[in-house]
């Protein structure tokens, strides 16, 4: 338990803004590499894919905070909100690059893409689900909504991360290991959450009985 205590103590010593600074580094790297001409022959696609990949990485990190506390006793909960904000930040940039650099605001073509290309439809639904989550990701909203309904809104992250991972798998023309690994991690996290939710409900029922 000494290790856990040390980890928890050092986590408490790290200010939250450090997470934001670290989280911006991938973007800084993408911008730097773009201007250095290091993004390959089709930089727009590379930028788009890298942003999407960081979005799913931050999303996964956000959702591992709770299991880490429950399974290992390491409490990083004060970093969860910043990781969530970074997730939304990269999802949003990913979408902006698609809108601006890739599709170049050709609204007609984009609209048909959203309706007709399943992987784009799914990605878009995932993004829309994140909007209320992001909008209420602050203390004021917790107070205004009350903890119970606030928590309900935040639960949209579960369908959203699943749709995000599915979007990634479907973008590929063939079944590819990388996107499948992300999907695998997401599924493990989701199953874990579902089981602990059920377990929690069961315990509550037993106590009240």
């Amino acid at each position: 338990m000494a290790v856990t205590d040390t980890l928890n103590r050092s986590a408490r010593a790290i200010p939250v803004w450090v997470i934001y600074i670290l989280g911006i580094l991938p973007l800084a790297y993408i911008i730097f590499a773009t201007f250095a001409g290091a993004m390959g022959m089709d930089p727009v696609k590379t930028i788009e894919h890298e942003l999407g990949q960081y979005a799913i990485i931050f999303f996964i990190l956000t959702l591992t905070i709770t299991p880490i506390r429950q399974l290992a006793g390491v409490n990083l909960i004060r970093f969860r909100r910043s990781l969530g904000h970074l997730t939304f930040f990269y999802v949003f940039l990913h979408l902006l690059v698609w809108l601006g650099l890739d599709m170049q605001l050709q609204w007609g073509q984009m609209w048909t893409d959203i309706l007709k290309r399943p992987y784009i439809t799914i990605g878009m639904v995932g993004f829309v689900l994140l909007l209320p989550v992001m909008a209420t990701s602050n203390d004021t909203s917790i107070r205004r909504l009350g903890a119970a309904s606030w928590r309900k809104v935040q639960k949209l992250v579960y369908p959203a991360i699943f749709l995000g991972a599915l979007h990634y798998v479907m973008v590929q023309k063939v079944w590819e290991a990388e996107s499948m690994i992300y999907m695998g991690i997401v599924l493990v996290l989701l199953v874990y959450r579902l089981r602990s939710l059920k377990l929690g409900a069961l315990l509550k029922k037993n106590r009240s009985a």
């Binding site: 599709m103 170049q104 050709q106 048909t112 893409d113 007709k116 290309r117 023309k173």
Partner: peptide
């Protein structure tokens, strides 16, 4: 002719840089 994955109406010419028009 629509493709389930990509709209085929426009294309991006490789080599135009990040602001190249479709």
């Amino acid at each position: 002719v629509d493709h389930p994955r990509w709209s085929q109406a426009t294309e991006r010419r490789i080599g135009g840089g990040i602001f190249a028009k479709r």
